[in-house]
Design a protein around this nucleic acid. Structure first.
Lengths: 84, 84
DNA sequence: ATAATATTTAGATATTTGTCTAAATATATA
DNA sequence: TATATATTTAGACAAATATCTAAATATTAT
């Protein structure tokens, strides 16, 4: 839970999540969307991955990232229990 | 949105939220639940308040804190839009 | 095999954050 | 009014974080 909230606590990472909502993308394509160096984006992807919010699959020389919405259930239920 | 996720990105603050889910509490009573100094708890309460996740009302010499579940809607909808 | 492209790792640095103690402020009570 | 209680503010400090550049690794293409 800690890892998830930590991962979500960054505008760049939240935007990455939003990008992956529409379609899977490789690291380079993701990086192009930001004015941030590739290593930094790579670091953000790593944090999202550790939180299990995204998964990665090597496709040739590219690494494709996919959003894992399942893990968001946890946050969802946590919030819902607060609202009653 | 940034403020909300920032506020939620701390175990102590999330526990404070959970405490306030059951009942309103004053600052001292909240602080008693943690092995953390009162000034630190006060600081956490301030962050939660800035995020609008809680509200405070002075009652005599005490300050009573109340959970504001309304603001959690924002997070809820953000997550829900990702899941479709 | 060599060169080019894609991505990550390593190491450095400035900023943010959570915590503390001491002091200040506000209210209640004797 | 003087004292006790409740809470916050101020200032300091160590740990965590986001970013960068340079270098390493992996894959593809010539």
């Amino acid at each position: 839970m800690n890892e998830i909230f930590k991962a979500l606590n960054d505008e760049t990472r939240r935007r990455i999540i939003e990008l992956l909502k529409d379609k899977d993308m490789n690291a380079g394509a993701i990086a192009e969307e930001f004015n941030i160096s590739k290593p930094s984006i790579s670091h953000h992807l790593d944090i999202l991955k550790r939180a299990d919010l995204i998964t990665s699959e090597k496709k040739g020389q590219f690494v494709e990232y996919t959003l894992n919405t399942t893990i968001l259930e946890e946050v969802l239920t946590w919030i819902l229990t607060l609202k009653k």
